[in-house]
Computed example of a mutant assay.
Amino acid sequence: MHMTSREVPITSSELANLWMTYQEKTMLLRILEHFIEHADVEAKQLLQMHYDSTIKAVDLITEIFKEEGAAIPIGFTANDLNKGVPKLFDFLYDIMYLHMMTKVEMSLFSLFCGISYREDINNLFINLTAESQAMNNQVTQYLLKKGVLVRPPFVSMPKEVHFVQENQYRNGFGLFGEKRSLNTIEVSLIHHAIETNLAGMQLMIGFAQVAENKAVQEYLVKGMKLSKKIEVDLGEFLRHSYIEPPATHAGKATASKVAPFSDKLMMYNTSLLTSFGLGTNALGGAFSLRNDLPTKMSLLAKDIYTFAQEGGKIMIKNGWMEEPPQMEDRNKLTK
């Protein structure tokens, strides 16, 4: 007899995917609530649209957990948000943040599609991927219209096809021993990494100036400096090819010292973006055909990994790291 989708037991990967999505989505709700409170009319429409879809996703995941008899995660609640406080970020940062987070969501949910097998759960992540893609497009066009998002450099269209003839190409050198210009793949990945770190750096600045825990504040300052280092180091590759790195005058932290969010939420958000940064860094290194770029990427990855490890220790020490669902300990059966 054919079982319906809901009659099929949930797998470990599906439970993990739902749990991780619940954490990310409940955090995002708190961030969006602060942004919506201070947004202008035009920005508020975009923020509210993503907020409403996020609420639906959380409700659907909660329903699945209940049907499976699973404990509902804590995630992030009203206790992680202080309403009625001054805005922490100014001039379009709310949409710039959404632009950054929809990139994270597109990556996460498309990955979860590939490792979810039950039809209803797979459809959930297919829909979430489509929603994040659509919202990313909307906020991209919004920011371009406002003149605060820098497009990657335009390029002349190739008129013929070439194949790499010399190993010097991978060594980063041209036929005559000079450093070769970056190819379009390399420029694309560097531009993306810099753009994301610029937004992340402002997030760290804002978080650091309102953090209550001294260790958290110091950690977030390290995050700010690390984002700056990544932006400067990768920017040098672009400048060597006579390409200016992306920069924007928008999206700065305000002077507010009143925290809209709990330290727990700010640490989780930082952890999520750090994990995304590690993935982006690995992708950039893997697709580059210039050996000096993966070498730089690997050095930066070490810094990012060390930063992530330190953040995890702070979260555990303060009781902020919610434990993912655990597999049964089969070793107990042999004792």
Rank of each mutant, 00 (worst) to 15 (best):
H38Q: 01
T274A: 14
L272P: 07
M157F: 08
L124C: 08
E328K: 14
S132N: 01
I304D: 00
G69R: 00
L149A: 05
M321W: 14
M135L: 07
I64G: 03
L300H: 11
L273V: 06
G75T: 05
M1I: 11
L46S: 06
A247L: 05
V8E: 11
Y97I: 04
S256I: 06
K257E: 15
T254K: 10
T11R: 03
T254D: 01
E105C: 12
H99V: 02
M204I: 07
M1N: 07
S132I: 09
L124D: 00
T306R: 05
I190W: 00
T274R: 04
S116D: 11
K159S: 01
I121K: 00
E7M: 08
N17L: 10
Q138V: 03
E212W: 08
T334Q: 12
E328L: 08
V148L: 07
V150W: 03
T334W: 07
T270Q: 10
I36D: 13
L92M: 09
I64M: 12
T280K: 13
N318V: 04
K229H: 13
L333P: 03
L283P: 00
V8I: 15
V139K: 11
V139Q: 08
A247R: 07
S262T: 02
E42H: 09
K229A: 14
F176A: 06
M49V: 02
R170K: 08
D80I: 11
T254I: 13
T54K: 02
F109N: 14
S188G: 14
N183P: 01
K296W: 00
D90Y: 05
M266V: 09
V258Y: 03
K296D: 05
L333Q: 08
D90L: 12
G206N: 08
S256M: 09
T62H: 07
F276E: 05
M106C: 10
E310H: 14
E63R: 08
L111H: 11
D59E: 13
I72D: 05
D292T: 02
E37L: 00
M267V: 00
T334N: 09
E310F: 05
P325M: 06
G69E: 00
S298G: 01
E323L: 05
L81Q: 13
V216S: 05
M157Y: 10
Q48N: 14
M106I: 06
I36V: 10
A215E: 09
A78P: 00
P86H: 07
S275Q: 12
I230K: 09
S298K: 02
F176S: 07
Q326I: 02
L18T: 01
I10K: 15
F173P: 00
K83R: 12
V210F: 11
I95K: 07
K56V: 04
A247E: 08
T270S: 15
S12H: 10
D303P: 08
S271A: 13
A43E: 15
F154Q: 06
K225W: 06
V148P: 09
H192T: 10
A134E: 05
L226W: 11
I115F: 12
L144M: 11
T62G: 15
H38G: 02
Q168G: 15
G312E: 15
F163L: 10
M266R: 02
